[in-house]
Write a protein that binds this DNA or RNA. Structure first.
Length: 873
RNA sequence: GAGGGUAUAGCUCAGUUGGUUAGAGCGCUUGCUUGACAUGCAAGAGGUCGGUGGUUCGAGUCCACUUAUCCUCACCA
């Protein structure tokens, strides 16, 4: 049968159909076969609010490459997919949607709001999953999980109770980061610092005994109503005598003491610092040490409260202006010093974060961090690239307790009940009906929910069934590779590691494969506000998923950012088309009776050469994948397919294909073999086109997805044939080069005389030269005496092309002279090395040998160039 | 303030444990309806690998210093 394939590859005709066939074949499903070695990846669960962006596309392409490769290698592979409930982001979206309808979440009430939230999740939660499928992701969709599903919730509950019972979770009044827009506490990791213009306002606080004033500086005048002290360093000679005195806050009028605390640095500002324990983390600590009262002067939505007296009801900025104006009027404003300031903002909404004292739940971090640090130090989990372990250590070693309670409704509700009678807390695995301390039935549950990252932290084991002892957990845990961006190491990776160490006594994965972020063409971060984001789905629609994947894989080197540009996708699309046409050509030459791919017995020179090159490729690509050098692996595949296979081998094979004799069958067999084996190597990177072509070629098995990964084969090493082919290719390139230089049309065939000692090599090359070097006839001999011929010198031969009318003797002499100089320069470099005793003594023998061989070649080449120059007269 | 990344062709980037003449894609120049592909074929121009010094027989690769640029972390009034 003659195959009729379109001249250009059209991914739209292929991708959805192929993906459906994979699903139908159930190929993504992990069987949980205890006999087979597992390889597991858990997906970084995208937010249900999310839409696929380039970051997801990169992250999931890398995961799919790894999982497809390991699957072909015969591992029992599990790529476990799922989504994250993303409490703060999702709740914000729903609140915004409600606002459109003119209602607040309070109007709906907790129950009603959660009903809406689940409806929202039902409607949009599957969107990103469908988008992942467009990319070709071979996740085991039967095992898809959700951080708020029953099993994950059970895991969350277990961990919370567990940590509470160990005393590693506590409730306390501490200073936390408060987002006035989201109206919830957030953790330290969720604060992003942005540089903003600010100032130091120097204010004079008069002593109550009328003996003058002390000057303090502040960047936040609006906190002045909350001041409960002024601190100076105990050793500060300037202020020693003032300790214990009181000052009166200007305008406000309240009396506050001057206290001694080492937090006040003598060399900073005036050496005296106002203390606002309710609204600054450091001041909070000072307040504790010096017994200062805590005075909260703000509301939870960013206004001054009744404690702020006349400023109550103002926004923070209004209050700041008013206070500065009032102080100035009262003569208490000493000076204003403009400055830049790092201001904490909420990572979700970028509203300024207000530090404030609040009763929240915390995880005690020190005891959890230690084993997690040790695990990485011991190499149980490795970061790729390695340098990110520094980032990890740095964070883990300086970690503070983790605020895990959120004043939100969408999430895992904190499993703590407060007794209305005895006031004690009951924390249990099952919802209690009575106080565990006094037995009272008057208990009420904490209204808050847990930080989203609390449940994400359990993802590698909660998704495998923990706390139940499931076969999946036994087989697939610990997982193998976690693929994620460096921007999420703190939020997620570190927390997974310490959670797993604590709960499982084992690290969650052996390798963390870190990638960078995808930037726009100008190197800027893709962002909504800049409007420079590229929608991967549009790219897939235009160029195909394979082209997008190829682009993302090609540019990738671990840990480094990459720039997206449509030009790169075009190049990838062209590559897909190239393979398509190579396959089309091969198929055109088949009649449908061909057997499944095999290596025929009567191999020709060029067959041995391509098989040897392919064999080397197998080894290299596999090694690169083992080392997570995905970008290098795909680059090698690209070069092999385009330059080696298409531009050389197929062209050479055409000679035999057109002969229609017994050699034709060998050529066909090798073409089929090399193409289909190469498709396997390429499949993890470009799954769709490789499947489509593989299905059309003679093959065994249902799908390329499950075909065995090629192995390096000693029987396919043909060193001598490789060397021979290299000589021939060099000669062909040299001839083409000379013809191009002289502007000889390819249609003008020439006689080619090859003077060489290696006649066996070049006799094989005769037909190649005819086909690829526009040779009409190739004459071999020991030497020729041809006047008016162009001569070409290669390492193994001297080639003459008589072209009397075309030869410009002067130009020819110049060219030869230039070539001679080049060769001489190179030779002298090599000879310098070879006469260096240090080099001879210390360099490996193979390197020295290589240099000697090169020297001999150059000497011979120079001899022939001299000869040609002499012949020119 | 601390830590880290990057710097290689006009542009975007590879370059694996140090080892022949530093690679690719795009762009550029020249030629080609070579019966798979113009999303193609062939040939070519273009780089003192940011700078200085060092280690080494040998450095784009390792070390020190330095410049530029980007990022992360940090409670600095």
């Amino acid at each position: 049968m003659a195959h009729e394939l379109a001249k250009q590859y059209d991914p739209k005709q292929v991708e959805d159909r192929i993906y459906a066939s994979w699903l139908k074949g159930n190929y993504f499903h992990a069987a949980c076969d205890p006999e087979k070695k597992p390889y597991t990846i858990v997906i970084p669960p995208p937010n249900i609010t999310g839409q696929l962006h380039m970051g997801h596309a990169l992250d999931n392409t890398l995961q799919d490459i790894l999982i497809r490769w390991r699957r072909m290698q015969g591992f029992d592979t599990l790529w476990l997919p799922g989504t994250d409930h993303a409490s703060i982001a999702t709740e914000a979206k729903i609140v915004a949607a409600l606002k459109e309808e003119g209602i607040s979440k309070e109007d709906l009430g907790r129950e009603g709001f959660l009903k809406r939230a689940w409806e929202w999740r039902a409607q949009y939660g599957g969107r990103i999953v469908e988008q992942l499928k467009k990319l070709g992701s071979s996740c085991d969709w039967e095992r898809e999980r959700f951080t708020l599903d029953e099993g994950c919730s059970k895991a969350v509950r277990e961990v919370f109770v567990n940590l509470y019972e160990k005393g590693l979770i506590y409730r306390g009044e501490r200073i936390i980061n408060w987002c006035t827009h989201c109206k919830t506490s957030i953790s330290d990791a969720e604060v992003e610092y942005e540089e903003k213009d600010g100032a130091f306002w120097h204010m004079a606080y008069p002593f109550t005994d009328g003996s003058g004033a002390i000057i303090v500086a502040t960047t936040r005048p609006e906190t002045i109503p909350g001041d409960t002290g002024v601190a100076v360093h105990p050793d500060d000679e300037r202020y020693k005598d003032l300790i214990g005195k009181t000052v009166r806050i200007p305008v406000i009028g309240r009396e506050i003491p001057i206290v001694a605390d080492t937090y006040a640095k003598m060399d900073k500002g005036t050496g005296a610092v106002k203390i606002t324990p309710a609204h600054d983390p450091n001041d909070f600590e000072v307040g504790l040490r010096c017994n200062l009262p805590i005075l909260n002067v703000m509301t939870d939505d960013g206004f001054m409260n009744e404690q702020a007296g006349k400023y109550a009801g103002m926004s923070l900025m209004e209050c700041r202006k008013a206070i500065v104006a009032d102080f100035e009027a009262a003569g208490a404003l000493v000076k204003i010093e403009p400055t830049k300031h790092e201001v904490g903002t909420c990572y979700r909404c970028h509203t300024s974060v207000e530090p404030r004292v609040s009763k929240q739940w915390f995880v005690k971090m020190k005891p959890l961090a230690e084993p997690a640090i040790k695990a990485v130090r011991d190499g149980k989990t490795k970061f790729i690239p390695e340098r990110f372990d520094k980032t990890y250590y740095n964070w883990m070693e300086n970690i503070r307790d983790w605020c895990i309670s959120r004043q939100l409704w969408w999430g895992h509700r904190i499993p703590a009940w407060y007794c209305d009678d005895c006031g004690k807390i009951t924390v249990e695995r099952e919802d209690p009906t009575h106080c565990a301390h006094c037995g009272s039935a008057h208990i009420h549950q904490d209204p808050d929910t847990l930080d989203t990252w609390f449940s994400s932290a359990l993802w590698p084991f909660s998704t495998l069934g923990w706390p139940d002892k499931t076969p999946e957990l036994a087989h697939y845990y610990p997982t193998n590779t976690l693929v994620t961006g460096y921007d999420i190491i703190f939020f997620w990776v570190a927390r997974m590691i310490f959670s797993a160490c604590e709960q499982m006594g084992e690290v969650p994965f052996d390798t963390v494969f870190i990638h960078g972020i995808v930037r726009d063409e100008l190197g800027r971060k893709m962002s909504k506000s800049l409007g420079n984001g590229i929608d991967p789905l549009l790219v897939i629609d235009k160029y195909g998923a394979d082209a997008l994947r190829m682009t993302l894989a090609t540019g990738n080197s671990p840990g480094n950012d990459m720039r997206y540009s449509e030009k790169k996708v075009e190049a990838s699309r062209n590559f897909a088309n190239k393979i398509w046409n190579a396959a089309r050509f091969i198929l055109m030459n088949l009649d449908g009776t061909e057997k499944a791919p095999y290596v025929p017995a009567d191999l020709a020179l060029e067959d041995k050469w391509i098989l040897a090159r392919f064999n080397a490729l197998v080894k290299e690509v596999t090694d690169n994948l083992e080392k997570f050098e995905l970008g290098i692996a795909i680059a090698k595949l690209y070069d092999f397919i385009w330059d080696i296979f298409c531009d050389w081998y197929i062209e050479l094979a055409k000679i035999r294909l057109q002969k229609h004799d017994e050699t034709t069958e060998t050529a066909k067999a090798v073409l089929i073999y090399v193409l289909s084996e190469t498709l396997k190597l390429l499949h993890p990177f470009m799954p769709f086109i490789t499947e489509e072509i593989w299905q059309t070629l003679p093959h065994e098995g249902e799908t390329i997805m499950l075909s065995p990964w090629p192995k390096f084969d000693e029987a396919l090493c043909f060193d001598a044939e490789e060397a021979t082919m290299n000589s021939i290719m060099e000669a062909i390139r040299a001839i083409r080069n000379r013809r191009a230089e002289m502007n000889v049309a390819p249609s003008k065939k020439a006689h080619v005389y090859v003077a060489t000692e290696k006649k066996d090599v070049f006799s094989a090359a005769v037909v190649f030269m005819q086909r690829l070097a526009s040779a009409e006839e190739v004459i071999l001999g020991d030497s020729f005496d041809l006047d008016g011929a162009v001569s070409i010198v290669t390492a193994d031969a001297k080639i003459y092309i008589p072209m009397d009318d075309l030869v410009d003797f002067e130009a020819e002499r110049k060219r030869l002279q230039k070539e001679k100089e080049g060769a001489e320069k190179k030779l002298s470099g090599i000879q310098a090395k070879l006469s260096n005793p240090g080099f001879l003594a210390k360099a490996p023998a193979a390197v020295v040998e290589g240099q000697r061989a090169e020297e001999a070649k150059l000497i011979e080449k120079l001899r022939m160039i001299e000869e040609s120059l002499a012949a020119l007269g």
